[in-house]
Design a protein around this nucleic acid. Structure first.
Lengths: 239, 239
DNA sequence: TCAATATTAAATCTCGAGATTTATACAAGC
DNA sequence: GCTTGTATAAATCTCGAGATTTAATATTGA
């Protein structure tokens, strides 16, 4: 396999409409914290910034409501969804519930094609983590993409579209917390060991251990946030 | 308590914007099968039918995408979400997963106010089921409202907003299946016994039995649909 | 000085017309 | 006869301006 340094992940489908393009850009900016939690999203200002019509931007905002990244309040416009420790704890625990069940089903019903794709995703992730260990910070963004791809590959064989749908939303949410909390501090080294363990037990069809390790893997991010300064969320959500 | 025949359920908040009004009407029509699964939703036609502007109707459609009652395909307009036996099975099993977990947490953390509200909701539901047993068909619609209210009251003390959010979406989905399948055939009598058992075990804080009974209660609707003619879904989704 | 009201400004919501894209029908060619 | 290509028609997507609602400011009275 030609896995060079610039290996690409499967294309995420080009946006064919202006609404989708604005939606993608806005989503990215919200997840990356360009628009902080609680910020008022005024259509009049944003339509210039994103070079698009007013109605078009409104539709993009409505699509973001679907992802729960934006909240719309009747006749009082839109806001970036606020954040809180309680919310992140909720997101994390619900993720554990859904993702472990998805992995269980995936292991039970996954075929060889699923295993092959999982091996490939893990290999890509490992490469990125290897570079990260070598202090190649430029790989951080690529690591995030591949980490997500790995987690999705794990549960790809889960036949429940609904579980995968909800998992997708929650993962997106937790990604926003990770970026904003700027505990995007260097990814700890032992995280690769965790991924390795999840990968091994999953391929061995050991559902019990795999889900157990996955649980702790997800919950670990929760502990990290709980060690943040206590006024962190109130400060971010203010105004 | 003044529980007369015309007892009302807590008001569902009046829509203050045209978009919300159109959204509510459209949602209702889709759930009730006025717009069958797979039907193309042409903005030009619907804007007259719902007496609203084109852009306004588009926004209402986007809001329905959030509920997964409508699917939007890039540059090719909107459609009513299709149905299938596999989808209903998925919805039902995911509902069991979420609703049992929610009930577990609700029992663990519910206070007296929660218990009081649950008693009230169960009482209202019992009244409706009593009338239904007397062949008073006019109560069917009110029963559906109260049944939903009862299920929500069960998990009202669950602290997870996300689980409740997802549960809300799934309940809405299964309600559409129930109506469309017109196995809105007379509600079987022993359903009250099931509700009674769920209610009793929940109030007794017996989480194990309560969740077990709730599981079977939800799964029972799945068996009913599986006995439908095999071409039912293909016929409905056609075109 | 504080509370309540009236006035002003801003932002949202709403609408219909124009520009692009997609789907359909028909004819020509292999 | 079937496929390919073109032309027509329909529907969607996009935009900016006008009507309503909400928020902010200034004024008046106690």
């Amino acid at each position: 396999m030609n896995d060079t340094a610039t290996l690409q992940t499967p294309a995420p489908a080009e946006p064919k409409t202006l609404v989708e393009a604005a939606y993608n850009r806005l989503r990215r900016d919200i997840i990356e914290g360009v628009h902080p939690p609680g910020e008022k999203l005024r259509v009049e200002h944003l339509k210039d910034q994103y070079e698009v019509g007013a109605g078009t931007l409104r539709e993009a905002l409505l699509m973001l409501v679907t992802d729960a990244l934006v909240v719309g309040q009747g006749q009082r416009g839109f806001r970036v969804a606020p954040i809180s420790l309680a919310d992140f704890e909720d997101i994390t625990r619900t993720r554990v519930l859904l993702e472990t069940e998805a992995l269980r089903q995936s292991i039970a019903r996954g075929d060889e094609a699923w295993e092959a794709a999982l091996v490939a995703a893990f290999h890509r992730l490992s490469r990125a983590e290897q570079k990260l260990a070598e202090h190649d910070v430029s790989t951080t963004e690529e690591w995030e993409v591949r980490n997500r791809a790995f987690h999705e590959a794990l549960i790809a064989a889960c036949p429940s579209r609904w579980i995968r749908h909800f998992q997708h939303i929650l993962y997106q949410q937790s990604e926003r917390y990770r970026r904003i909390s700027l505990f995007r501090q260097p990814i700890p080294r032992d995280i690769h060991a965790e991924h390795q363990a999840i990968f091994d037990t999953t391929l061995a069809h050991d559902a019990t251990r795999a889900t157990s390790i996955l649980s702790e893997h997800i919950l670990r991010t929760l502990d990290a946030v709980k060690r943040m300064p206590s006024d962190f969320f109130t400060a971010k959500t203010a105004r």
